[in-house]
């Protein structure tokens, strides 16, 4: 442990599905717990991850590699990967909601934090959460839809921080 300036992590969160919401929040909260300075820029589909009311879902239809597993039953049943034909995942109303519910249950069962918990940890650990102003304007978001502890900014605001960072990731 040196006494130089803290290491810095700069993340761009650009995807808004439940599965892709995890990497930025896990990395940001953990880096902050490791005494790093962290900023996350939420842009395009990543922006809704800052909404008070988190609606992130998984979409198995657009992700053929996603294992469909059940969070209940015997171990053999849980380990089985259910083949879901596209005709079902794309045509059955509410399929994404069903898959999302299954994934949330699996995660909870394995002791994985919810996105809300990880986001709260980020706020507690002083992670700078930057909402992309341009995305807000394009998609019609208003400031009051987001949690309190965020900054509004654009590419320059993020890049100023990222310019002095040790790790930069686009997620």
């Amino acid at each position: 442990m040196s006494e130089e300036r803290p290491k810095r992590l700069a993340l761009i969160a650009s995807k808004g599905t439940l599965d892709w919401a995890y990497p930025p929040f896990i990395l940001a909260s953990t880096a902050a717990a490791l005494d790093m300075e962290v900023a996350v820029f939420f842009t395009f589909y990543g922006l809704p991850l800052l909404c008070k009311d988190l609606k992130a879902k998984v979409s198995p239809h657009s992700n053929p590699a996603m294992p469909m597993k059940m969070p209940f039953g015997s171990e053999g049943f849980q380990n089985f990967e259910w083949p879901i034909p596209n005709a079902i995942s794309s045509n059955i109303p509410g399929f994404d909601t069903f898959a999302t519910s299954m994934m949330k249950k699996s995660f909870a069962k394995k002791g994985v934090a919810t996105i809300e918990e990880l986001r709260e940890a980020c706020v507690d650990l002083d992670v700078t959460l930057i909402a992309c102003q341009m995305t807000m304007d394009v998609f019609g978001f208003t400031r009051d839809q987001f949690i309190d502890d965020i900054d509004l900014g654009g590419a320059a605001a993020f890049l100023e921080f990222a310019a002095d960072s040790d790790i930069s990731l686009f997620i």
């Binding site: 896990i26 909260s29 953990t30 717990a33 490791l34 394995k110 002791g111 994985v112 934090a113 918990e117 990880l118 940890a121 650990l125």
Partner: peptide, 9 residues
């Protein structure tokens, strides 16, 4: 019972 990254947090 907690999984990554909860123990560290």
């Amino acid at each position: 019972g907690m999984n990554c990254p909860l123990p560290v947090l």
